[in-house]
Amino acid sequence: MQGMTKVGDGVTAAVLRRAPMFALLWWVLAEGQSEAWGLGAVAVATATSASLYLQPPSRRRFSITGFLGFAGFFLWNSLHGGAQVAWMALRPRPDLRPEFLELELALPVGSPRVLMLNTLGLMPGTLGVRLDGDRLKLHVLDKRLPVAASARALEAHIARLFGVEHRPPGRPRGGAVNDIKPQSGERLSPPSSGWERGEGP
C-alpha cells in the first residue's frame, strides 16, 4: 500500500492493540479453561491477521471514554425504550400516534451513520426507515415524544465515539429540535413520489 516503514509501525501498534482483545474474547468463549489455550493461540493469531486484512489500521481511533459514554447512554435508553413500549402494548387503551419524521443527519458518511441508523431502532420510540443522502426517514411511535432531541443526543454520543465533528444542520451546535419536520402528506410534500399511497402490491 503506502510506504513500508509507516505501515509497519501502524501494523505493530494495531497488533498490540487487537491481539489482547481477541485473547480476552477467547478466554470468555472457552469459559476460562486453561487447556484450551493451544487452540486459543492459533485462533487469536488468525483473528488478528484477519482483522488486519479486513480493517487495516487507520488514524481514526475509538475513544474509550466515548465508548463508555455511548454504552451508558445506550443502556439507559434501551431500558427506557423497552419499558415505554411495554407500557404502550399493555395499557388497556392503546394510544399510539405513529408518524414518519425526517431528520437531517449531522454525521459523516460511513460507520458513524450506520451505527446511528441501527441504534435508533433500539432507542425509545424511534425506528430508522430509510436513509436518502443526508435525510433519514424515521418512524416514531408517538409524535408527542421529544424524539428529535434524543436523536440529536444519540448523534452527539456517536460523534464522540468516533472522534468526528457533529454539526446539526441549520444551527451551529446542539438544541436542534425544529429541524425535524413531520412528513404527514397533507402538510408537507412527501420525500419521494407516491410513497403515501397506502398498501402496495
Binding site: G110, R113, V114, L131, D132
Partner: peptide, 10 residues
C-alpha cells in the same frame, strides 16, 4: 434496493 437510490453509504 431496486429503486436505485444513491444512499451515499458504503
Amino acid at each position: 434496493d431496486k429503486d436505485q437510490e444513491n444512499m451515499g453509504d458504503d
